[in-house]
Design a protein around this nucleic acid. Structure first.
Lengths: 291, 291
DNA sequence: CGGAAGATTGATAACTCTCAAAAATAGTGG
DNA sequence: CCACTATTTTTGAGAGTTATCAATCTTCCG
């Protein structure tokens, strides 16, 4: 039952169990294992002063009709992103971050650890996602956030966020709605982990990431996208075991549904994948401004 | 794997699979099974005009320092509660409710259904809980809410809620924080269902309900409280099977930890229960105004 | 090339599920 | 108030999915 053997818990997470990371922004990368290169496939954002936080603006426009002043404000709070390495811990459970982080490129995940080292991944943060308005405003975070790949991260001081929200109610509303979507995803995950079998869990996760990344233009024409996870991370996402993930992955591969190689997922037959998952993207369609 | 045999899905839920309930406020009770009496043990609220929505005010005061005007506003929107029967569906997935419901007494649960009838319970609503600000403001609900026991429910039109929130930012903030707590609970549930074994899952759920109900004064001196669930509901809460819940419950009982009788849970040894669950109530302590 | 992390495989165990039936409990109606 | 019925709880046996353990192979990076 316990799984604290170096497989499930990669060094950066294990290190944190007794750690006391506060603001690791300028730290040298913490991970002991080899860093994986972040290959910005679609978003080739070498951010220029005129095009700051493009991912955030694009995302929020799905939830509210932003005006020029709003977009200016968003640009004003967005510093140039900094590239942090895979394994970097943005938010550590119990320690008030004091900052909000914006994922400009790359990927991160929320997770909780059990005292014995078991890890449950609670969600994935993709470009445009903010982490975390509420950590900053209230209490200590009840979970941690770490980078899955080398990622471009914008750090925004808590105070500037607060000022912006106060001055721009449309942004505040858009963020609140965006968060509602995150909660809807969380609910679907509970259903996924609680009720479906291994094959369904894994394929459902793949379908969800496909839809989410497709919305922000990170899926290639051939239906492939970056998914910087190893099989342990998939295990901690679905509540399964790395070994069982391996075997389930093989089934999906042999059935001609997906291929996961070089931290990229290729969906070969989207319809059949969705069918085996029992996937219905309705819960992801929550947004105010449909186009 | 499938479980659509009358055990897991009680009639009211099964009936809803193909149903189209919108506003069932004045409907005759929908459930086919025998209604369970709601015995208001602690809250003996025969609500008088001067003491409306006491549960909501008390709850929100945990999250913000409300002033007299705020409390007046809360009283103003609160009609006299109506007693609805166990099984009543307050919110039905996909159908915009148009109202917000306040649980004044009794208990309800959020849940999602799979096409084959499997049900995952997503959370419990206890007195003082509101359901659901966000359903009203945006999109269609992605899950349903049903009463677990005969309950006293206040119906509040969407528009009145919106007006109140606009006029009383402290209330809005308190509600937002209250919702953050709900999300923290949801995250802990995902950890629970994903990573713990049957014994831990069940005892963790019991610990959580104990803390939540204790905060609002619904736990007796002897450590017992109303928990209007059958073993199928516990199964759908934890992602287990009714049969396995039964056996796990027996273990807890034989170990002298809890007794569940007449829809009341008696915790015999709180410390040992928390120990077997690996329960840490930190995630439930999220609140702005500690006293 | 060397070493570490990750993926894969095989054998075995364990937890949890399924099925089916019996016992107990609670609400219904005469 | 008692019999009657539906629901819920309990039990047993057996099956199945998933976990565990341990070794090997592969890949990646320095």
């Amino acid at each position: 039952m316990l799984r604290y053997n170096g497989l499930a818990i990669s060094p950066p997470y294990a290190a944190e169990v007794g750690g006391d990371v506060h603001d690791s922004w300028n730290d040298a990368p913490q991970q002991l294992h080899r860093p994986r290169d972040f290959v910005p496939k679609i978003v080739v954002s070498s951010p220029s002063p005129v095009d700051l936080a493009p991912t955030l603006v694009r995302k929020l426009q799905r939830f509210a009709r932003l005006e020029a002043a709003d977009i200016d404000a968003l640009s004003a709070i967005s510093e140039t992103p900094k590239t942090l390495r895979a394994g970097h811990i943005l938010v550590s459970e119990g320690y008030r971050p004091g900052n909000v982080f914006l994922i400009e490129g790359g990927m991160a995940c929320r997770y909780k650890l059990l005292p014995n080292g078991q890890r449950q991944i609670l969600g994935f943060l993709i470009p445009g996602d903010l982490c975390d308005i509420h950590f900053a405003r209230s209490g200590r975070p009840d979970h941690s956030v770490a980078l899955l790949s080398n990622s471009q991260i914008v750090k925004i001081p808590e105070r500037r966020i607060a000022e912006m929200l106060a001055a721009h109610p449309r942004i505040e509303r858009a963020l609140a709605l965006a968060e509602q979507l995150d909660v809807a995803i969380l609910r679907e995950w509970l259903l996924n982990v609680g009720q479906r079998n291994a094959l369904q869990k894994l394929s459902h996760f793949f379908c969800e990431m496909h839809v989410r990344l497709d919305k922000i233009g990170l899926v290639d024409d051939d239906g492939s996208f970056d998914l910087p996870v190893n099989q342990s991370a998939l295990a901690d996402t679905t509540g399964l075991t790395p070994v069982h993930i391996n075997r389930t992955l093989q089934r999906l591969r042999n059935d001609g549904l997906v291929r996961l190689h070089h931290r990229r997922l290729l969906i070969l037959d989207h319809d059949r994948l969705a069918a085996t998952a029992g996937f219905d993207d309705e819960y992801l369609q929550f947004q105010q401004c449909k186009r």
